[in-house]
Design a protein around this nucleic acid. Structure first.
Lengths: 113, 113
DNA sequence: TTGACGTATTCCTATATAGGAATATAATGC
DNA sequence: GCATTATATTCCTATATAGGAATACGTCAA
């Protein structure tokens, strides 16, 4: 069996560094394909192809305006990724571990009232 | 050119659903390969192979114990992923947008004092 | 030593890229 | 209509999988 297709979900789409850079370039707002070509430094066909992948998984939305296409980030498509990694926050942040412990204690005290 | 190797970084390693499930199974603490085979439902060779990928990008650490191998999550390797997605939090969470605005205002007021 | 258990590795193959190059499609102005 | 600009698509190829199957390796007990 081959690797999971890049268009399978946000996890796979976002694994590619070029696509992450495209999303970064869109983080501040809308942009056209030409603008993205300039900002990211990829050739136009590659940008269009990457955008097609991002579109397919719902990570970006497009708006037509004459011959231009205004692309923008579609936040919610990134949320599953965020939620998944967030579960591991405590594995690298000891301060948050302590906070977790504290909250757990408070909850226990609350429940035992 | 081909796709970025799965062993290139955490983004690519984590794109695979089986590997995410392995990490989930390790989220609560150490586990041996056999335990992971039971929990995740993959065959032993595939588990070992996925663990090899996770090892290579530093997402897991191993501890030898006789013929057993105790695997555990190495949190910091996930942090880059977390940091990257976190930048887009505001694109899906309007409450945080408002919080951002509020903080921005407070900062402006502070600076204009 | 031998056998058994736990884990890792090798070989195989279908599949899916990513980028380069060329070209197609669409919209606009003259 | 025609040239021009903006974007999308097609064709090509080297490369890297993921899983199945078989097997090798390492450790321990009797």
């Amino acid at each position: 069996m081959a690797r999971t297709p890049t268009t399978a979900d946000s996890f796979n789409a976002v694994a590619d560094a070029s696509r992450r850079r495209l999303l970064d370039a869109l983080a501040t707002g809308e942009a056209t394909v030409s603008e993205l070509v300039d900002r990211v430094g990829l050739r136009q066909p590659q940008v269009s192809k990457h955008l097609a992948v991002l579109r397919e998984v719902g990570l970006v939305l497009v708006r037509a305006d004459g011959k231009r296409r205004w692309y923008r980030v579609n936040g919610p498509a990134l949320q599953p990724v965020y939620e998944w990694v967030r579960n591991f926050e405590r594995t690298w942040n000891t301060q948050l571990d302590r906070l977790d412990d504290l909250l757990g204690e408070l909850q226990s005290q609350e429940e035992s009232k």
